[in-house]
């Protein structure tokens, strides 16, 4: 079964319930799926954006909107849609996410998605596609990556600063590429920059996972980790970090002091 056919099946599954009330949102979603099926991706995008504007938009709209954006070559927007969605992604959506990563040269991110999909089990068409992507990415990284590759992703992240989700993905790619290299001098800088972006987009849990195991954190990394603990209402772990920041009289001392003074959440 092709990706497109799978998408249609998924959409029709949702439409089975949507059609019952024959709402205009359901009609637009159906029109969007039909346009996608016919390869009229711009029309599909318009219909799905009408759905997105509706108060009764389905929570898993990203399943349709993201693939449409990928088909239109608007991979950066697709990543924003996929990662910004609260709904759990299914295999097909993940496949499109992997493709969007791949098109944007986020190869480590793409590989992780495709490898994860293969381990979960896919149909024969998607399995072959995922295997091809993994093989082609592994071919790229047969040799340890060079510093210029990391520079490329960091520069791209700076250029996309107004798109924090994509900027974070680029920095995460840089971090993963750096992990493959033989020179780890930039590790602290990269994880800190990634933590800054993740905190900006509310991914405090990921910041904690990223920085808590770090033994030698830069001062900025400690501040980002403390912020993530505070956001997670984990005062026990946040307080010693904030105390240390205040004592160090570093650039975030006054902000740390203010956070310490805040009453604990119930």
């Amino acid at each position: 079964m092709t990706k497109r056919a799978l998408l249609v099946v998924v959409a029709i599954g949702w439409l089975g319930t949507a059609r019952a009330d024959d709402s205009s949102t359901a009609r637009h979603l159906m029109a969007g799926v039909q346009a996608f099926k016919d390869g009229r991706y711009e029309e599909a995008l318009v219909e799905l954006r009408v759905v997105a504007n509706a108060p009764d938009a389905p929570p898993d709209l990203a399943f349709y909107l993201g693939p449409t954006l990928v088909q239109l070559g608007r991979d950066d927007e697709a990543i924003d849609v996929f990662l910004g969605s609260k709904a759990s992604r299914d295999e097909l959506t993940d496949f499109y996410l992997g493709e969007a990563y791949y098109h944007l040269k986020l190869y480590r991110k793409a590989r992780a998605v495709f490898a994860g999909l293969r381990s979960r089990g896919l149909g024969p068409v998607l399995e072959q596609g995922a295997a091809r992507y993994v093989a082609s990415i592994d071919a790229v990284y047969q040799q340890p990556p060079r510093g210029e590759t990391i520079d490329y992703y960091v520069a791209q992240a700076h250029e996309r600063a107004n798109d924090p989700i994509l900027a974070a993905e680029l920095l995460d790619e840089a971090r993963q590429v750096e992990a493959l290299s033989s020179d780890h001098r930039r590790h602290g800088e990269l994880v800190t920059a990634l933590a800054v972006q993740w905190n900006r987009i509310g991914r405090g849990t990921d910041v904690i996972e990223l920085l808590a195991p770090e033994r030698a954190r830069p001062a900025e990394g400690t501040w980002q980790l403390a912020r993530a603990y505070v956001a997670a209402h984990d005062r026990a772990d946040a307080t010693p970090l904030l105390d240390a920041i205040v004592k160090s009289r570093g650039p975030h001392a006054s902000e740390a002091s203010a956070l310490l003074a805040e009453p604990s959440s119930p």
């Binding site: 205009s24 995008l45 318009v46 954006r49 504007n53 509706a54």
Partner: peptide, 22 residues
């Protein structure tokens, strides 16, 4: 009106093709 709303947003973002489609 729903299409016009999508078109206006796309047009404001400089997304001419999607705006024209809408």
């Amino acid at each position: 009106d729903a299409y016009v709303a999508v078109g206006d947003t796309a047009r404001a973002a400089g997304d001419t093709r999607v705006a024209a489609t809408a």
